[in-house]
């Protein structure tokens, strides 16, 4: 498999180079989509299937839609193809420097098992069987809590770009499709299956690779497809229930973290209750992540009526 790994690394570098330095926006975006598939393979080879799952869902599903939509918009505005293959030297220098530092950091890593034994030792007290979930939602819950807040902040940052300042209107442009066409047909069939897969990934997260982020991304993709197929109107931010869906995950996480203070400290989950608490956080967080990601991909409101 050494040949395979070497070939995979070469392809990743080629795809990355073509995406960054190749001429033409559209080509760059397609190479970025391809790069996502290759990176997912690399994560599996590195024994990190959790990351591979997230990459497959985000890279293959959502970023493609987002970036291709952006290219289409630039082209309609007559502003596409501003990219020349001219290299921006200061940026290249800075990126090269960071790259060299990363290479140095990797090479200077002491060989050894890392933190895995320490996690394995404490795993029974965390309430879950998947060590990655244990780290994300118990041992380093701070990180995950802040990440979920960052996601929300990104969406709030996107909202002021609403056309005409109507940020409470339905997200994105008003999508439409031939009601009995191919696109609508696909949009009628796939989302229920995607919903099942998304919930499955959340359930699986307690035992094996999976979790709120991966599941939420798949659910977001299902929602985006429903809207893009013209079957469901995108939600608007005037609706209190949608706002609740956005903040419920980080909110519950924060509340249970504060409750943990009764047991010794912020975000400290007592072993007996940890499983239930983590499960509750995961489920509600999945919903929030799904709604946040879907609204980000659909884009700021463009003046269509809200739901």
């Amino acid at each position: 498999m050494a040949v395979f790994d070497l070939a995979l690394c070469t392809l990743i570098l080629l795809a990355a180079l073509a995406a960054v330095a190749g001429p033409g926006l559209f080509r760059a975006v397609v190479f970025f989509v391809v790069y996502g598939v290759l990176i997912a393979l690399a994560w599996v080879r590195l024994g990190a299937p959790d990351v591979a799952l997230a990459e497959a869902a985000i890279g293959a599903g959502l970023t493609g839609v987002l970036l291709l939509g952006a290219v289409g918009r630039l082209s309609r505005a007559g502003a596409d193809e501003p990219l020349t293959s001219r290299i921006d030297w200061p940026v290249a220098l800075a990126a090269g420097l960071v790259g060299a530092m990363l290479v140095w950091a990797v090479l200077s890593l002491a060989p050894g098992p890392g933190l895995a034994p320490a996690v394995a030792e404490i795993l029974p007290q965390t309430g879950v069987e998947n060590p990655v979930t244990a780290v994300l939602l118990n041992l380093r819950a701070w990180d995950t809590l802040l990440e979920s807040v960052v996601l929300l902040a990104a969406l709030i940052g996107l909202w002021p770009l609403a056309r005409g300042g109507a940020w409470q209107a339905a997200a994105g442009p008003v999508h439409h499709a031939l009601p009995d066409g191919v696109l609508a047909g696909f949009g009628r069939l796939l989302p229920p299956v995607a919903l099942l897969v998304g919930v499955y990934l959340v359930w699986a997260g307690a035992y094996q690779p999976g979790g709120a982020f991966q599941g939420g991304t798949v659910l977001a993709a299902a929602g985006v497809l429903c809207v893009m197929a013209g079957l469901v109107r995108a939600p608007g931010m005037a609706a209190p229930l949608w706002r609740l869906a956005l903040v419920a995950g980080p909110g519950l996480f924060l509340a249970l973290g504060v409750a943990g203070m009764a047991f010794g400290g912020f975000l400290l989950f007592p072993t007996a209750l940890a499983k239930g608490m983590i499960l509750a956080i995961e489920m509600v967080l999945t919903l929030s992540i799904a709604v946040t990601l879907a609204l980000m991909v659909l884009g700021p409101p463009e003046g269509g009526g809200a739901q």
Partner: peptide, 21 residues
């Protein structure tokens, strides 16, 4: 232990599918 989750997921999928199709 996936059956309870499954019942909820299937119910949601049926609802979504009736709405879409």
């Amino acid at each position: 232990d996936a059956l309870a989750f499954g019942a909820a997921a299937v119910a949601a999928a049926v609802w979504l599918s009736l709405r879409l199709l």
